[in-house]
Nucleic acid binder design. Structure first.
Lengths: 194, 194
DNA sequence: TGTACATCAGTGAACGCGCGTTCACTGATGTAC
DNA sequence: TGTACATCAGTGAACGCGCGTTCACTGATGTAC
């Protein structure tokens, strides 16, 4: 094991336990004691690694968000056409949400008590994953394949639709995510028509 | 004053105080004591009218949500064309958010600890305001003005874009809401093209 | 209209629980020579 | 390779604060006759 490995292992165990704790009791149930009971790590150790309760929540938020963005980026950058790019983003988003229901729920819930944008490190890591996609969108726009918009709107238009869909599905509304992939790929593509 | 008027007045005072309290301290700062300090209503009276803390939060959520939906419905049902309908929904949404920043923030934050769908009365009141709009969308679809989609998607596609925009603007991202009205009205309209 | 009664609205002291956090400490691991 | 030391990782009892909630009560308002 490398130098930091024991610490990394402990941190991962804690975050896994935190996610399961959130899944069962929501944000209000995400207490130091509940996490501790689940992973057997001592209270002092939790503070050693994460500073305080918010530190745990923020670390879990960061791990979840970057996993989602990595997945979207990997799938999206593999495409060539503008239509393929948009479709890949939507499919990757819903794939990830379906495979990581608890983490997705946490991503939607956490900002209510956390303000993740208050962490410059996280903002930067997020930007590093979003910018290449925005870059691609701008190239497609320059080639006349999609409409020319202020850069922020590509994300708003595409992610807005799919995030709202995911949010409601996670909230228990009867939505067929298979059907949603097809329909949203089309509506998002149409939305960006020049 | 009518029979229930004193109670109604007290309830309104409490909800106003709760909203201001939330605006200053977030969900975590929304405590019984903080609300009480702000409006001067006694603890016992709070429990008399709202049952418990969640009852206050739910009542505030309901008041805010219905205000937003009433505003959207009023503006949207005044339109004739499909394009006008979509534009009216987007403009009304952003108008309301801009004029009710704190309430909008609360609407986005509250579900993290509340699950408003657990209240059948609220679900029904919400549905009563959303259904007429969905009905209009279906009529426009039948007339060939917009694409035919499973009914839920009209809301997902239009509201998704504008809600994501509002959420980010409320979160402090530098978004020009005037520009957003124009752009989103166009992207949402295009998204629903047959 | 006046009176007796029932219900609604409001009060505030008191309680106990559980929460986040601290801290003095031990054990494990890495580093220098 | 062995030893001494420094740093990192982990422990768990203890603390105090502030939270939501209860409850016995008073005052205000509405109702019946």
């Amino acid at each position: 094991m490398a130098t930091t490995s024991r610490a990394e292992h402990t941190r991962a165990r804690v975050l896994d336990a935190a996610l399961r704790t959130f899944a069962e009791g929501g944000l209000a149930g995400l207490t130091i004691q509940a996490i501790r009971d689940r992973c057997g790590v001592s209270v002092g150790s939790l503070y050693h690694h994460f500073g305080n309760r918010d530190g745990i929540a923020l670390a879990l938020y960061e791990r979840s968000l970057l996993a989602l963005l990595d997945r979207i980026q990997a799938d999206a950058l593999r495409t060539r056409s503008a239509k393929g790019l948009i479709r890949a983003m939507i499919v990757a988003y819903l794939d990830w949400v379906e495979a990581n229901v608890d983490a997705a729920r946490f991503l939607f819930a956490a900002p209510a008590e956390l303000d993740p944008l208050a962490s410059p490190a996280l903002v930067q890591r997020k930007r590093a994953r979003v910018l290449p996609l925005a870059q691609r969108a701008l190239e497609h726009a320059a080639a006349g394949e999609v409409a020319s918009l202020p850069p922020a709107y590509y994300e708003l238009v595409v992610i807005g639709q799919v995030a709202e869909t995911a949010r409601r599905w996670l909230g228990g509304e009867p939505i067929d995510l298979g059907e949603a992939r097809t329909i949203l790929a089309r509506t998002a593509w149409r939305a960006l028509q020049p």
